[in-house]
């Protein structure tokens, strides 16, 4: 990690990390507002957990982690969509058990990463993220993904808002809510994937939910909330990267994990917003 010793902004890994953090924060802030409004925090969390199997698979196959995470997140989104159609009793239990089996497969794949491919750090990178060790081209890919996601969100913004407020009403107005729900879940899968690139699969819920929930407490309109959530997320991501960079030398020979700083900042922002609203 001596790479981080020279100037902060001139370091290539830092530039890469800042780009990934920005892409993840901006898209997930905007998409997260809908996730919180639709009460789908748990669905987002499920997608993130499921996508970790894709991250582990990517190491095993030697493909880009972005492709691995996104592929499994899309599969997870299809599963959530299918489960949503069925109103069978015990649906949540069944979903939890399927999720558990998925995590078991992640365990297996990560084990194979270590034993077959010698990727000793795969578990950490997939679950908790390794922002400074991201491959050089990843920053640009994440930025492009975020732009595509934001454009998609803009396209479905108005019907999505209507369907979020009242699904029946939207259907009566001629919105194809099934198609819309599917498109939204795809965007959510993309947002979760980008977050997983930044802070790892099991921490990605923080960037998705935290800034959005905080922004919803402060902003008045949905667009303002989406913009504010993006900015708050950006502040948390860049602040976390900067703090991690500074932490070299706090304890001998260590850089503290970026993901720790980002999740802690997100929690602080959320708590501050909750207090500001109350006070």
């Amino acid at each position: 990690m001596t790479l981080l010793q020279p100037g902060f902004l001139s370091s290539l890994p830092v530039q890469n990390a800042l780009l990934i953090g920005a892409g993840a924060a901006l898209l997930s802030g905007a998409a997260g507002v809908f996730t919180v409004l639709r009460g789908q925090s748990f669905a987002g969390h499920t997608l993130a957990d499921v996508s970790s199997a894709g991250g582990a698979l990517a190491y095993l196959l030697g493909i880009s982690p972005l492709a691995g995470f996104f592929g499994l997140a899309v599969l997870g989104a299809l599963g959530v969509e299918a489960a949503g159609e069925r109103r069978a009793a015990g649906r949540d239990l069944a979903a939890g058990i399927v999720l558990g089996a998925g995590m078991g497969i992640t365990a297996l794949l990560l084990y194979l990463d270590v034993t077959l491919k010698g990727h000793g750090g795969a578990a950490v990178a997939v679950m908790f993220g390794a922002l400074f060790a991201a491959p050089p081209g990843l920053g640009r890919a994440v930025a492009l993904g975020a732009l595509a996601g934001l454009a998609g969100l803009g396209l479905i913004y108005r019907p999505l808002l209507l369907a979020t407020l009242d699904g029946e009403l939207a259907r009566a107005d001629g919105v194809n809510t099934k198609l819309l729900g599917g498109a939204y879940l795809l965007l959510l899968a993309l947002a979760v994937t980008l977050c997983a690139m930044a802070v790892g699969a099991i921490l990605s819920t923080a960037l998705l939910i935290g800034p959005a929930a905080a922004a919803l407490r402060l902003a008045r309109g949905p667009v303002a909330a989406m913009a504010l959530a993006g900015l708050l997320g950006l502040g948390c991501a860049w602040g976390g990267i900067w703090l991690a960079y500074q932490s070299y030398g706090w304890t001998p020979g260590h850089v503290w994990p970026v993901s720790f700083f980002i999740t802690a900042l997100v929690l602080a922002v959320y708590a501050a917003a909750a207090l500001a609203r109350r006070g």
């Binding site: 923080a206 935290g210 720790f260």
Partner: peptide, 23 residues
């Protein structure tokens, strides 16, 4: 919003765990 709040606290705890392990 109990679900969002609980999810955030959990994730922050996991992040804390990552820090302890790294140290």
């Amino acid at each position: 919003r109990p679900d969002a709040a609980a999810a955030l606290v959990l994730v922050a705890l996991l992040g804390l765990g990552a820090l302890f392990l790294s140290l």
